[in-house]
């Protein structure tokens, strides 16, 4: 059943698309990784904005970012500003997943934690 689901999902994700999950909560990172991999995505993870900027340079396009906001070292808002300032990555699709939407940069798709997985996966599919 699981493999069928993954297979169906893989069918939906025709091209191997990559998602970079940036969140300081390991349980959230890994749960999202599992859910996204089930859907056929390739998944990379980072614990904060700084780490995400490094990982980003190693990814093959197309890719998108699932971004938490409140994180140590470099926040999601700081990461997003750095992303926008870099011509190479400025057009990267971003989905913000946060517990405090008021701190998120404006003009970005936001999903409030705790997220509804079905809606989340729909939103991710629409990122590309």
């Amino acid at each position: 059943m699981e493999s069928v689901r993954a297979g169906e999902a893989n069918g939906k994700v025709s091209q191997r698309k990559t998602l970079l999950v940036v969140d300081d909560e390991p349980d959230i990172r890994e749960s999202l990784r599992d859910a996204l991999e089930d859907e056929g995505y390739r998944v990379a993870v980072a614990r904060n904005g700084k780490e995400a900027l490094e990982v980003l340079r190693t990814l093959e396009k197309p890719f998108a970012v699932i971004l938490d906001i409140i994180m140590p070292v470099m926040s999601g808002a700081e990461f997003y500003a750095a992303l926008q300032a870099d011509a190479l990555f400025a057009d990267t699709p971003v989905l913000i997943s946060t517990s405090d939407a008021s701190r998120a940069p404006s003009g970005v798709l936001i999903m409030k934690k705790p997220i509804d997985l079905e809606r989340f996966l729909d939103a991710v599919a629409n990122l590309f």
Binding site: E2, I28, S31, D34, A35, D38, S97, P114, D116
Partner: peptide, 24 residues
């Protein structure tokens, strides 16, 4: 309330949703 409790709750919700999706 706004951050520290919601984060683990989000992990619980995501993991439970995943479990449901994978449940045979």
């Amino acid at each position: 309330l706004g951050h520290d409790l919601r984060n683990p709750l989000s992990a619980i919700t995501t993991a439970a949703s995943l479990l449901m999706r994978r449940a045979e």
